[in-house]
């Protein structure tokens, strides 16, 4: 977590006035998937709201979490209608299969489980929502399938239907060696493999080659907001351009696009800043 980012969210959010505390917390939660202790302390300092009150609000609303949530969220409805249709059994089946209790996250940080009181689709109960996708009339048998789908990623971008997304092939901007890695697929396409180093850790990082997708896979988990150094795995040159990200100010990483031109991505984890310069190419 980067204190500067929190301060930026606060500044952008309410220009120094006290209103909209909840939406401010929502924004922080949206960024980190939970409310880090440090973040609450900074909010308290910057807005003058006492930490006790912030903590009270953060623990009052179910939507806020003080512990990191997993990549995927499964909510089982236990409202009256779902309850009488067996929501309880569904919830305990999820608990059994994931080996966690509601409010907890699996050890691999993949799935968080929660129970909710009503999702407003009572006639279709028992209802389970995984990453915003509704499953109706859920039976114990369907539980495994839902977990499987959630792990695979329900939000996966549909490449054929979304025209803003297209695969690119890139190579090192120094040695021009292709960085495409056919041994590991991300989003259904060969991944882009680079080497990264941060905090004395040095390992591979694989990026999705779909322009517009931000899926990554890594050897060492990169903390959110960490700026990492990128290297070519073949010539070992550092991949760093002289320009800086327009969103966060971190150095950009240049990659040559096979079809011609250059794509630059921000070196800060979680920042979606990027530039595409397909000089002379018709996309």
């Amino acid at each position: 977590m980067n204190p500067k980012q929190i301060e930026k969210i606060i500044d952008d959010h309410h220009n120094g006035n006290q209103a909209g505390l909840i939406s401010l917390l929502e924004e922080i939660q949206a960024k980190y998937s939970y409310l880090p202790e440090e973040a609450l302390r900074i909010v308290s300092q910057k807005t003058g709201t006492s930490l006790v009150d912030l903590y009270g609000v953060a623990t009052f609303y179910r939507a806020f979490s003080l512990r990191p949530r997993g990549k995927h969220l499964i909510s089982v409805c236990l409202g009256t209608a779902c309850h009488v249709r067996g929501g309880e059994i569904i919830a305990s089946e999820f608990q059994r299969q994931l080996a966690i209790k509601p409010g907890e996250t699996t050890l691999d940080h993949e799935i968080s489980l929660e129970t909710v009181n009503c999702l407003g689709a009572c006639a279709l109960g028992p209802i389970v929502v995984a990453d915003g996708h509704y499953f109706s009339n859920v039976t114990v048998k369907k539980v495994e399938e839902i977990i499987h789908k959630a792990r695979a990623g329900l939000d996966r971008i549909d490449i054929r239907s979304d025209e803003r997304i297209f695969p690119i092939e890139v190579s090192c901007s120094r040695c021009n060696h292709s960085l495409m890695d056919k041994s590991r697929y991300i989003d259904g396409y060969p991944s882009i493999r680079v080497t990264v180093s941060f905090n004395l850790k040095h390992g591979w990082l694989r990026l999705s080659c779909l322009y517009g997708s931000f899926s990554v896979d890594y050897e060492y988990q990169v903390p959110l907001d960490e700026v990492v150094n990128f290297f070519c795995p073949y010539c070992h040159a550092e991949l760093r351009s002289s320009s800086f990200c327009m969103d966060c100010g971190a150095p950009m990483v240049p990659l040559l696009v096979r079809a011609g031109g250059m794509v630059q991505i921000c070196s800060r984890r979680g920042c979606k800043g990027h530039m595409l310069d397909l000089t002379g190419v018709n996309v």
Binding site: S50, V52, D53, Y55, G56, T59, F60
Partner: peptide, 9 residues
């Protein structure tokens, strides 16, 4: 002091 308060619900 505002050191303690209500939590959760």
């Amino acid at each position: 002091a505002k050191a303690i308060g209500f939590r959760s619900r």
